[in-house]
Design a protein around this nucleic acid. Structure first.
Lengths: 145, 145
DNA sequence: TATTGTTATACTCTATAACTATA
DNA sequence: TATAGTTATAGAGTATAACAATA
């Protein structure tokens, strides 16, 4: 009983490691890392935002946002434009290439989901998802990024 | 259907992110990081090993092992001793404090397992573990560390 | 000649602090 | 005086390459 809990936890932890490695490898193959990928997804979801806001959404220092945006801009995936009413601020938005990259990321996510879970028995999968949901709920869905 | 796969994958990804954060925080509170914690657990499981072997077990460069062992030795958790028959090599083993720390890590792992999964319905937990096992199996249990 | 570990060096990711331009 | 972003600096984590001691 307590043994089952431990075994399940170990398996979950092992999977955490593997999933992280897999995601980083996939992103790396496309010139991204987790932090920069997250920027692209945020911009895809919310449209252009000011760097200050980006730093709050990502829970990262403003200085770090400068660096992330610098790199993504060099790669051609985001562009800075002046804020229309506040000359201190800078709007960051996706370029066409960035939009394409974000769309492609969603496609690859779906592909990964199928590769990892596509073979699981549907009833088991539902239980699996339910348990994940329970655990996440108890943690509080604080991470609203 | 494919939707269920996607939803489950997203939940899994979210949970693994949280688990990773939680583990790093816990380790950090005890003066460790994932890499150094792994060293302690490996030494606890296998007894003293030569640095070269450690670098292979951890899949990390020999240079990096030097650094990890330096830090852990400064912290008093491991000690270097000369290899009895090969004067090039160095044996790394846990000190008494290191052994205590490793034991304590196992206790904290069990505690975390209960906190995360202790409330889950036993039948659901079994299914959950089974699915995790299936996924890990398909990935190949290559990570024999 | 091959192997073990270390010194020297460098790169990535992220943080804090000081500063500039604007509000 | 407060805010948005940048320059300067630093520290952790990890890698490659060159080298010394030993096998």
């Amino acid at each position: 009983m307590s043994d089952e809990v431990l075994t399940a936890f170990d398996a979950l932890f092992e999977l955490t490691t593997r999933l992280g490695e897999s995601m980083r490898a996939d992103l790396g193959a496309h010139g991204l890392n987790p932090a920069r990928a997250e920027v692209l997804l945020v911009l895809h979801r919310r449209g252009p935002v000011v760097q200050r806001e980006l730093s709050q959404i990502l829970r990262v220092t403003p200085r770090h946002v400068t660096g992330l945006v610098d790199t993504l801009a060099e790669q051609g995936w985001v562009a800075r434009t002046p804020h229309p009413s506040d000359r201190r601020a800078v709007l960051v938005g996706l370029t066409d290439a960035g939009t394409a990259q974000a769309t492609e990321m969603h496609r690859r996510r779906a592909e990964a989901a199928r590769a990892w879970l596509g073979d699981v028995d549907p009833a088991d999968l539902t239980t699996f998802r339910t348990v994940l949901g329970q655990v996440l709920d108890r943690l509080g869905s604080s991470g609203e990024r």
